[in-house]
Design a protein around this nucleic acid. Structure first.
Length: 577
RNA sequence: GCGCCCGUAGCUCAGUUGGAUAGAGCGCAGCCCUCCGAAGGCUGAGGCCACAGGUUCGAAUCCUGUCGGGCGCGCCA
């Protein structure tokens, strides 16, 4: 609708030989008295034309091509042009909504290929509530992009190489020996202490029996002190002893087992959260397939590296990063930056039109570093779109729920979903702009009343479903064949509801363009409210057939949009509650 | 100290890429079921858009500075 009107205005400007100003010609006025749409082109053009805005507006309006969409057009003294839509235009949109072959507001799949990487949490523990927000946001964004015609792939980058995997293996192995020997072992403070490690150890016993049972207590160990890096040195020594005790092959077997199980746990958590990935991309594969080495070679060829203090550095500061970055440490081990950059180079080369990275806000230093690397490699760094998701803080009974990663006693995504349900969790996560810190009120998310926005929206959907069940019982099925009936939709509340419904395509477009799924949540609340008001004020199951058909059609359309919007957020649309 | 994000109603937040008199929800004060779901509806009060400058026909929105909050700044991951 907006697009049609914009075309009209464009045509008028072309006819007049005036150059359209940048930005949108048509917008939604916030005052309902200012029409369904309005334009401020005249104000923008007045100065360059040397005429008054009012005169410009009058000229434009008199040059508009005739359009059936427009019922009435009003020029305000300031120069605003206000457009009131015809009922015919509204009903044409209603017909599009009711058309079952194509969801209203969606675009058919096009050629644009998008890769969206999100969550990508390290596989050394279960997902927590911070990851949950990234998951809800990333997946909703993916769904919105799909709905607006993009071909989307969801990808999870698995940091399954390096020291943290060693720590995971060690942690599991210690619990494994405890499990078998019933003797409590000294547990390193830098190890992973959560109960899930015990679960993994139990599974290891189930799968492999006691074949990894060895002793590692021989050498004197560095003390496990919190001062300086005592804990790190201690854990590294324990890892070395473990490797020695098990031998390379068995060590790799334990590590692979722990890694595989951990990944499976994460995959399962995400699946139950309604998030399905197309690909889990392994960091380790970048080593085994030589991409890390190739990256280093490419950078060196381009003169982007140098050696200092025995380490290999990348000249990041010449590409906009605040300082140079180490690629390979003096001990010969790669930093995480090297494979991460190799990964992003690989993504670039796979030929997507858009690359989106959803990261936690604590990773904001990461983007300039990767961009610097891509630029040094001759890629366009702006091709990578980074969305930073701010933290979520849980509140229970008005009190902040403390989150501590130490001792592994953080709130997991699974616990959150168990407590408030998947629908509430997903809706609350994406209800606010991802740039905002999120206060997640657990009590509100659980409450089943109007104060809870999820229930409010879902209730509107269930209410319509119930209405149609009532119809069926009374033998008053909706007859969609006769669209002449729709002209009976002449109540102000019906017009209000219709104008909200026809806005849906614009909301989707805006949410897709701005990576802003929260706009959909906002919109659904508004739509639900308009429906509830309508439902309350206007009798729907009236005896007169044509009037009843008209009103039921409107309800039917509202139901379709509510269900569609909820599904884009990954929230169910129940028929009964 | 440097960098990124954020300051809008008592609380939690929108604000359509610079437009008209500033928008919701919750909370608060009232009112509304003989009726298709009251898990609902209606009405009301509540604002110096953190502060100070600047840009222009026009600023919550853009620029600069100040104050306040969150986060990040390793040969960690």
């Amino acid at each position: 609708m907006k697009r049609e009107l914009e075309a009209c205005f464009d045509a008028a400007l072309v006819r007049l030989g005036w150059i359209a100003p940048s930005g949108s010609l048509i917008e939604r006025p916030r005052e309902t008295g200012h029409g369904d749409y309005s334009s401020h082109v005249a104000l923008r053009l007045a100065k360059s034309l040397g005429k008054s805005p009012l005169a410009v507006a009058q000229t434009i309006v008199s040059n508009l091509p005739p359009a059936f969409e427009i019922e009435r057009i009003a020029i305000e003294p300031l120069g605003f042009i206000n457009i009131h839509l015809s009922q015919e235009a509204l009903l044409r949109e209603l017909a599009r909504m009711m058309d079952g072959t194509h969801p209203y507001g969606h675009s058919p799949p096009g050629a644009t290929r998008v890769l969206i990487e999100f969550v990508s949490a390290n596989p050394n523990g279960p997902l927590h509530i911070g990851h949950g927000r990234g998951a809800a946001f990333g997946d909703a964004l993916a769904r919105v992009l799909e709905a607006t015609g993009s071909c989307v792939e969801r990808e999870y980058y698995v940091n399954d190489a390096g020291r943290q995997m060693d720590i995971l293996a060690l942690s599991v192995w210690i619990r494994y020996r405890e499990y078998l020997t019933r003797v409590t072992q000294a547990f390193p403070s830098a190890g992973y202490q959560g109960d899930y490690i015990r679960d993994l150890a139990g599974k290891l016993v189930g799968a492999e029996g006691s074949r990894f049972l060895r002793d590692d207590e021989r050498a004197p160990l560095p003390p496990d002190t919190p001062e300086s890096d005592g804990a790190d040195r201690h854990v590294d020594a324990r890892i070395a002893l473990m490797k020695e005790a098990l031998g390379d092959e068995d060590y790799a077997a334990v590590l692979d087992f722990a890694r595989g199980q951990m990944l499976e746990l994460i995959r399962q958590d995400l699946l139950e959260f309604g998030v399905r990935y197309d690909r889990f991309y392994s960091e380790r594969s970048l080593y085994t397939e030589g991409q890390v080495n190739e990256l280093i070679r490419l950078l060196a060829e381009r003169g982007e590296t140098y050696t200092q203090d025995g380490a290999l550095w990348f000249r990041a500061s010449t590409h906009g990063d605040e300082k140079d970055r180490v690629l390979m440490r003096s001990n010969g081990a790669y930093t995480y930056f090297a494979p991460d950059l190799a990964y992003h180079l690989d993504k670039m080369r796979r030929g997507y039109d858009r690359l989106i990275n959803v990261l936690g806000s604590d990773h904001h230093g990461y983007a300039p570093r990767i961009r610097a690397g891509l630029e040094a490699l001759g890629e366009d760094p702006h091709h990578l779109e980074v969305r930073l998701v701010q933290f979520a803080v849980l509140y229970r009974a008005g009190q902040r729920v403390q989150m501590s990663t130490r001792s592994g006693s953080f709130v997991t995504l699974r616990e959150l979903v168990d407590e408030v349900g998947r629908d509430a969790a997903r809706f609350f996560y994406v209800m606010r702009s991802e740039t905002q810190h999120l206060d997640f009120d657990l009590d509100l998310a659980k409450s089943q009343s109007q104060e809870n926005p999820v229930y409010y929206v879902q209730y509107a959907h269930a209410r319509i479903a119930s209405l149609f069940r009532e119809c069926a019982e009374r033998g008053l099925e909706l007859d969609q064949s006769d669209r002449q009936d729709w002209e009976r939709l002449d109540q102000p509340l019906e017009r209000t509801l219709l104008t909200i419904l026809i806005r849906y395509p614009e909301v989707l477009e805006q949410a897709a363009d701005g990576s802003a799924p929260h706009l959909i949540a906002q919109y659904l609340r508004e739509l639900a409210q308009a429906f509830h008001a309508y439902y309350h004020a206007v009798p729907l199951l009236v005896s007169e057939r044509s009037l009843r058909n008209a009103r039921l059609s409107l309800c039917f359309a509202a139901r379709l949009i509510l269900a569609d919007g909820l599904s884009l957020l990954g929230v169910s649309a129940p028929s009964k509650m």
